[in-house]
Nucleic acid binder design. Structure first.
Lengths: 192, 192, 192, 192
DNA sequence: CATGAATGAGAGTTCATTCAT
DNA sequence: GATGAATGAACTCTCATTCAT
């Protein structure tokens, strides 16, 4: 695949991302993507064989800023955790180009079709990084926590809950902050 | 609609529930339901105009045992909370006829199409009941909690998180128990 | 068929007439008629086997006032002709329950299906009656006309033209009056 | 749409015209047209979204020879009028590929659905052209007529009447000629 | 007679996918 | 590589018609 092809592929992925953000995962057809990209019907098939492949490319391209915060952390663990949680909040509550619904639909579809989901790996990676941060915080006596692994899992789970709640029933900014407070509390911290 | 019709409608809903449990919400077509019920193509349309209507009937028929536990509570609040959480666990982790994926897909689809979802109301009702239980527990000095409302919301959110995690990435029984422990901890209780 | 049945049949025909007036002939389904009559689906079939039969019953019941004017004529032929033409105008331009469109559609459908149309007979009868009136008027020296038969045909044809024009392109009351003037002129009369 | 597409579109229109000529307007389905053209089910939808669109394309393609006679008239007005009327006769009484029934059904359907009909415009244009011819004939003293506008309208109306009569009840060639004689008479002309 | 649930044929419509150019 | 016309499978939905009650 030449240089130009790579550019075109990326262009398709970017356009498709907008479509998925607007209409979810399952409702999107190859035709929708073709139209959003203003390319030919057959042209899309040169790069992707179906919408699943397109969506996985979208996921792959989408950067995970929150995870990046966890990984490149160099400050005090409590600060890092707070930054991470705020980054998550931003991601989850953003209005424009929010791919969360599509991502859930994708994960569910994979489950239903008994295929592997790209998201599972990302989820596990993020959980690990969070656990490491907490363990580190405890070691450095900035945090208090018996079981960093369980706590990390619990936080991830709450964050998933916030995500899904935001997406299906709406969550106020305040309610989100309250949830952050709870999560911080579980490692002996507070924003106050 | 006569008595017989009501029975038939219920029969359709029961068969449809199995289909939705197996294949999610969006992937199901009227044809699938017709085939599962072994009725005629047009016959289904006598009762339901589209899959959304069928699915809403499924939701309406599906009893919410966990909520029932909260509402008919007569024992000690801590016990009731534990029963409730265990009921939730059972609901979420059951292998057969699990409608959670379909329910999420439905909620997301409603979101995408900007329609009202039946589930939102149920979610809010359950949150309220949980809050009431906690407030009651605190009053009777069985529980410790500053802000029952926020705590109830947080628990619900964690439960949604467990649901979605179970459904998209799998959650072990132990991990679930650990999460229950955390939730109990947030009102000063423990199972140990 | 009992007395009650005849009444019911007539009731159906009356309701159906409204439906045909509103929606034409071809677009009307047995279901439409059933709904307009608020009777059972199968019930309609006890009286009529299809919409054609219903429509023919509608035509049969519909009185032809213009023809009646021609036939019961006892005044001066010119007066009778004028009354007849005015009656036609009323029939054609009436807004409510106007069956002309449906009647045309029916006639065309019969043509297409190579069946006999009820309307053809009525048309021929009316032409004859008109011819007789003109011949009579000529004999009594009230009218001037070489060829009563051709003139009658021509008038009928113009009236059909007015009907179809009214129905498909709209005709003003004045334009109609102008046409009447022409028709009168063809037998040496005028309204002025 | 490429050159080849335009040809194919025209091919479809031509085949469809035959179908409409045989079966009228309303009875024709997309499936009928597909079969007449021997193309695929979905293929037709690349060019037309429904039968109305197809029929309008048929109308647009169909040349109006009679109108052409009026417009390109260069001879003596009486001759032109006669040619025009004979052209009309040919059009109306032709046996093969006669679209008049379908055209009427279309006009009526548009009326019923309160949409604009392509035919109305054509009708008005033809009326105008006829009026101009008569006015011209009068000015040049070839014709005698007080009110060219009313006379043109009256002729058009008679022609519509002939059309509809031909189509629904049959009109003999002689009867048609007789009608032509009447129309010529209304501007002081005769064929004899 | 009357009902209305049930059936199944058939029309409409949309897209994934292919393939000649 | 790229195009876009063409195909055909799959679904939706509506009714005419029947038939047990």
């Amino acid at each position: 695949m030449g240089n130009k092809s790579i550019q075109k592929k990326q262009y398709i992925v970017e356009q498709a991302a907008k479509v998925f953000a607007q209409r979810g995962y399952k409702a999107v057809t190859m035709k929708d993507i073709v139209e959003a990209c203003d390319i030919s019907r057959g042209g899309l098939y040169l790069y992707f064989k179906d919408t699943t492949e397109v969506f996985e490319a979208v996921l792959a391209l989408k950067e995970n800023t929150a995870l990046a915060v966890l990984k490149t952390a160099d400050g005090e663990p409590g600060e890092v955790l707070l930054s991470y949680l705020n980054e998550k909040k931003k991601e989850i509550t953003k209005k424009k180009d929010n791919l969360e619904v599509a991502a859930f639909e994708y994960a569910f579809a994979m489950k239903t079709e008994k295929k592997d989901s790209l998201l599972k790996k990302q989820y596990q990676e993020e959980t690990k990084a969070l656990e490491k941060l907490i363990a580190d915080g405890v070691k450095k006596k900035w945090m208090v926590c018996d079981n960093p692994q369980a706590t990390a899992k619990n936080m991830m789970c709450t964050l998933e809950g916030l995500k899904v709640t935001a997406v299906s029933y709406s969550v106020s900014s305040d309610a989100f902050d309250q949830a952050i407070e709870y999560m911080l509390g579980s490692v002996g911290l507070t924003t106050k």
